[in-house]
Each structure stands twice: as structure tokens, then as C-alpha cells.
Design a protein around this nucleic acid. Sequence first.
DNA 1: ATTTCTTTGTAAAGCGCTTTACTAATCCGC
DNA 2: GCGGATTAGTAAAGCGCTTTACAAAGAAAT
Lengths: 340, 340
Amino acid sequence: MLKTKTPSLKDVAAAAGVSVTTVSRLMNGGLDLPFQTKKRIEDAIRSLNYRPNPHARRLSMGRSDTIGLVVPDIANPFFSTLVAAVEDAADEKRLAVSLHATLNRAGREVEYLQLIERNHVDGLIFVTNHADDGTLAALINRTGKVIIVDEDVPGSNAPKLFCDNDRGGYLAGAHLGSYGHKHVVFIGGDERMISARRRCNGLLRALQETHSDQARVDRYAGEYSVEYGREAALRFLEEKNSATAIFASSDEIAIGVIEVFKARDVSVPRDVSIIGFDDVGPLHLFSPPLTVIRQPVREIGRRSLEMLLETNWQDWKPSASEELMPVDIVVRNSVAPPAK
Amino acid sequence: MLKTKTPSLKDVAAAAGVSVTTVSRLMNGGLDLPFQTKKRIEDAIRSLNYRPNPHARRLSMGRSDTIGLVVPDIANPFFSTLVAAVEDAADEKRLAVSLHATLNRAGREVEYLQLIERNHVDGLIFVTNHADDGTLAALINRTGKVIIVDEDVPGSNAPKLFCDNDRGGYLAGAHLGSYGHKHVVFIGGDERMISARRRCNGLLRALQETHSDQARVDRYAGEYSVEYGREAALRFLEEKNSATAIFASSDEIAIGVIEVFKARDVSVPRDVSIIGFDDVGPLHLFSPPLTVIRQPVREIGRRSLEMLLETNWQDWKPSASEELMPVDIVVRNSVAPPAK
DNA sequence: ATTTCTTTGTAAAGCGCTTTACTAATCCGC
DNA sequence: GCGGATTAGTAAAGCGCTTTACAAAGAAAT
């Protein structure tokens, strides 16, 4: 294969007998040319199979037509569904997506946030799933053009998009309460995390509405992982917790819990009821099918891109702009009246 | 926030009292400078908080330090796990990944393949999951620098990485055979797809080794989707197929099958045995836990990036270079002796 | 003391595009 | 047939970096 250089704008211009400016302007829609000229240029483009060099274009224009997407873990179905939705929406807008996973490694988030600084990307959709010590918030406030999704970075001034965590908790609590559960353990993030705090609040509120001061919720705090789900389930068993139901704050946690309950012959929902959160995996095929609060993950993904694109960053005020996506409950078979 | 322009190499040079060349060469390791000069420059970089503009760098160097990754569907756990592994490996090599989902839409694959042409990306990892009419193969052969993963694009000259499909089929067949199954239906892609062909061959061979000419496999061909799994299960039931076991060629298909079996009160494995393929979802929590051929998805992801990086594209010969990753069987509880 | 290497730099071209500022040609009304 | 507006097009600067080709200064060799 002989090394024919890829054609440049100049080549096209030469072939069409016009200047590069003319070609460039034609291509970018800034010029109405007489039919003849236009056709000559278009023929030249076609016959040379010309495509603009994106790097030159980006350097010249000072933007990249690429958005950054940083998530904790791409393999996690919740995030991968989110990624899929963002990619889909971005593609529609002819934007590329530069994908980065932090895997909760220290410094990763900071590093990826910097991508924006030298306009590697035009904007960033940022999702974290652990508490921040202030570093992240400071960086976000300095760089701008980031949308915070799913979990808050407290102190950051950026448009935010969460699911309606409080309502999620409330729905779970109301459901559990209506079955007669008064004491439930909440397994989720720690109290610094908005998702955990709000879900827990909602849960307790609903329980109290049904059972007033008999209502009680214990909080087990840890990562949103299968591993922590197992750990929490073990703790639940070992401390012979008298709660009759568990509210597992993510699919992953629920999976971990169910795994050990299965191994220890704890029957769900006979011995203990479980209600999950997210509903992205095939939970309906579990035994028993898992009752769950569903997040509209794809909508969250699409909406986050919209927000990134529609906010006018020039004069965006650090307002308390927080958008909440609705959740709902999907009732399956993992909740029953308490045995005890 | 006043509009301080982001610092450029020139600013650094000025601040350090040297030329831009010097700074550039220092940063790219091409120069040993006397300690004093070096320190001056480094101080300047630090105090200006300078970071090179990636677009300028890319334009100048003619490469992007970005690889493209095109998959059929990011939300599908199999692919998302693959994506996660590739991203992880890429990050280690300081490469960005540009992610694209084809969603089996016509023209998408072609379009993304073009990314490589104007060095938008330095290489492409390409995974498709349907048959090609020759267009893709032609394009791939023209552009080069692509690794084909998971499913073949017949006629394409590129390094290829698949799992050991034949052995996967064989393992499934041997397992089923040892339980006394002679007649099984294979649900998977059509005969133009290497994954389907090889798995089916392996399956039949194993069955024949156990039951010689009593062995029989029916092939249901369709997409690797939950939807098709449902469809196939319905067909299975409606035609009262006398097969005693089903080999579902992906997690998705298996999920679809199990869904309808559950709805129709077909008991697994009592009425019919099922064996799946992939094992990326939480199949162990299904009822019953699904026996499955496992693909080393993460390893496939990592390896595909390695292959992209290690092949010397200058003098790569269209050899029959096909690499196979090992699969294994994980026995759970969805296979039992046939009832009939 | 002159030549020859190194060391320590520099100036300037080039990557391929966009865009600003400008000019030449054509058309219109009178 | 002239001034002015419009149309059709150009030249050249600039985006921020890398890299080639070259130079000055000091050290080593003759």
C-alpha cells in the first residue's frame, strides 16, 4: 500500500480551483456559492474522499465537540446504563464521548476533572459514589462546565441531577409499613452522602406515618457494592438484628445480601423482607423476584447531557439548581408480612 | 471571573526566559538541561499552572492518543464489562477511549470505522454482533488498525480475538450429554456468525461422542437479545419441541427464555434443562441458578487493547491471526436428567 | 592557537483548519 | 455610464504545539 498522504483542505481547493477559504466556508455553511463552483468543490471532496482533520479543526475552533463522562465503574450495570444513555444522546448531537472510570481510586477524579481545563473536552458529566473531602468541590467550582449526577458533591456550584431519593425512601417505607414492618435496616452509603441521607429520611418518615413511634430504622453504612452487601448481611445475621425487613440501597448491595441469605438458608421474604433500589439488573428473575424502587436511569443519562448543553455557562449563577427525576416502586415478591 | 487566557507554551517560555523549543523539548524528555534552567522552567510551569493543549499537540504529532471502541450496545452487561476492561487497560497506557454504540443501526458501524481515517483515533477495537454483507470487511481492509473482537467480520484482514466458541459448545454438549440429554435446541445467531457456528458444532460433536447418532440439535437463529430469547422460548413451547435441553447462546437469550418459562410454568430444570453462555450477570441468583459457559470477558477486553498496541501496523500481513480465549463451564443448577 | 566536539540553546517551518480583513467583479437604479 | 451595493472570492494570520536545522559557547584534542 503506497503512502498516499491523506488529502487536506488545500488539496481540495487546488482540485476545485478555488482557495482554501472558500472550501472551508462552504463546508461550514457560511457561504452560498453559485451552483457551478459549489458542484466543483463537492466533486473534488468526493473524488479525493476528503474528510476534515478533527485535530486541526479543534485547535482552530478552540473546542473539541467531545464531552467527558466520568463514572465510578463502567461494568456496574447502573452506570453502564447511564453511560449508554449519555452516549446515545451525545451521538444524536454529533458529540463524541470520552469515557473515564475512577474505580474509586484516589486522585482519579481530580485528574479527570482537569480534562476540562485545557479544553480536552467541552464539558463534563461527573458521577461519583463516595463522599468528598472538599477537594472535588473546589476543583469543580474552579473549572465550571460540569454537571453533577446521581450523587452530590457537597459545596460544589454546578447544575445537579439526582433521582428523587427522598421519595424513593418514602415509597419503600410506605410499602414495607403497609405490610406491617416497623423495624427495618437500611443498607447504603454513609450519612455524608445525599443518596443515603434522603432515602433514609424518606424511609423513616413513611414508617412513622404508619407506625408512629414504633418505627425504627438501623443504618448500615458502606459502599454501594456486592461486597458490602455481603458484609452487611453477615452483620445483620451475626448481631441477630430484630428488624423484619431490609432496604438495600442499590442492586449491588441487594445482590450481596441475597447471596449470603441464600447461603445461610435465610428465606426471603418469609424470614426477612427485602426491597432494593435501582432496578437495572434482571431482578425479576431472582428467587424471589425482587421488589424494588426503580430509578429512570436512561432518562437521567439523557437529561444530564441536555443539561450540559443547555446551561449557558457564561452567566450561570451558582444557584441551587437541583433537578430531581421521579422514581417508582415495582412490586414483585420479596416483601411479605413479618414472621415475628 | 475575569477572562485570563489559559497559558500557552509561549507564556511559560517567556516566564522562564527561554524559547518555546526548550520548554517543549524538556517536557517531552528530549533534552537534558542544566539544573538551573530546568528548575526555572519547572517553576514557571507550576506557577502558571500550565498544561499543554491536547489539540495542538495532536495536530502537531499526527496522533491522538485516543483509541476508538465500538460496541453494539453499551448497556448490555457483556459489552459494558468489555468496555470497562478496555478503558482500564487504556487508562494504564494513558490513552483516552472514544466510545461508540452502534445499536445495530445501519450505517453506524461504517461511520464509526471512518473515525480512524482522519486519525480521530489511533486505532479501533471493533465488536459487532450481526452478520456483515461485505461492506464492513471492505472498509476494515482499507483502513487498517482495527482489532476485531468477539464476533468475526468474515473477509476482513485484521487481528481477531474471540473466545473459544467451539470449546464452549463442546463443554455444554458434554455436560448435557452426561446427564442423558440427546436432543437439545441451540438458540443463538444465524449460521453466518462464527460464534453460532462454532458453538453449535462443538455442541453437536460432544453430543455425538456420548450418544452417537441419536444426538440431535435444532437451531433457532436470531439476535442475541432478551427479546429473541422470549420469542425462541415461545416457539419451543408452541411447536412442542421434543428436545429436553436448551443451550442459550448468551445471557440475554437465557433471560428471555427463563422469563417465558416462568410465565408459562415450565419448570427448570425439571421440565427442561438450560445452559447459558457468557456469565456476566448475577445468574447465580436466578431460580434456579443458571449453569453456564463462562467467557473471560475482562481478559478479552484487556487483551484486545494489547493486541491493538502490539501489532506493528507498518508491516502487518493479513495472516490468519486469530486468538482464542479459553472458556469454562460453571455448573449450577439448571441442568438435570431429562424427564421424558 | 586552531580545530573539533559537546553542550545549551534558538529561530522558524509546519501540522490543517477557521476566520478576519480585503479585493475584484457584477448588478442595479438613475 | 457612474456611484454604490452586492456577490464571489482571496490572502494571510492565528490556533499551540513539535521538530528540524542551525548557532554560539565552552571543553577537549591536536
